[in-house]
Amino acid sequence: MTVLIDPPQWPGPRGLMWSHLVSDTSLDELHVFAARLSVPVRAFDRDHYDVPETVHAFAVSLGAQAVTSRELLQRLVAAGLRRRKVHAVRAGE
C-alpha cells in the first residue's frame, strides 16, 4: 500500500492551503485511506482527494508518504491511475 501526499501549497477554500492525496496502487486503496482520515467523498476529484493542510500531518502519521508534487504526479502517471479532465468539444470545433 502506497498512499502519497504532496505539500499543502495550493490555495483553497476557508483560507487554507491544500494537498493532493493519491495512491500509486489503486483507487480502492485511496478511498479506504481517505475514509480513515474522515475525508468526505466530495473531496475526490477523478484520481485524487484534495485535503486541507490540517490533515497533512495526520495522513503522514497513518502511513501516507510525503513527496513533492512532481513525484506525486510522476508516480500517479506511472501507475496508470492518472485521469485527466475530459474537455467537451463544442459543435463546430
Rank of each mutant, 00 (worst) to 15 (best):
A34T: 10
A34L: 10
E29W: 01
S38E: 11
F44G: 01
A43F: 11
R46F: 04
P8D: 09
R75A: 06
M17V: 11
R90I: 10
H56Q: 13
V60S: 06
V51I: 15
H87N: 12
D45R: 00
R82W: 07
L37Y: 09
L37D: 03
L27T: 13
F33C: 04
S61Q: 11
A79E: 07
P40Y: 04
S69D: 03
T68N: 03
L81W: 06
P8L: 10
S38K: 15
K85H: 13
L27S: 03
A43E: 12
D47I: 01
I5L: 03
T68E: 05
P52W: 03
P8K: 12
Q65T: 06
V51G: 00
S38I: 00
F44C: 05
A88H: 12
I5H: 00
V67H: 03
V67K: 03
S26I: 09
E93S: 14
L27W: 08
G15C: 11
I5K: 02
Q74Y: 02
A43Q: 13
P13M: 07
D50S: 08
G15M: 13
R14F: 13
T2G: 00
H31G: 00
A59K: 00
A35M: 08
V41L: 09
Q9I: 15
R36T: 15
V41D: 04
V32T: 14
W18I: 08
L21K: 00
D28W: 07
L16N: 03
E93M: 11
T54N: 07
A66I: 06
D24Y: 03
T54H: 06
K85R: 15
A91T: 14
V51N: 01
G63W: 09
M17H: 13
F33I: 09
S26T: 15
S19H: 02
S38N: 13
E93N: 13
S26V: 12
A57E: 06
T68W: 02
P52N: 00
A57F: 03
L72M: 10
V39N: 00
H20G: 03
V39R: 02
P52I: 03
G63K: 09
E71R: 03
A34S: 08
V32W: 04
P52E: 02
R90C: 09
S26W: 05
L37T: 05
I5G: 00
V86N: 01
V86P: 02
S23I: 06
D28C: 05
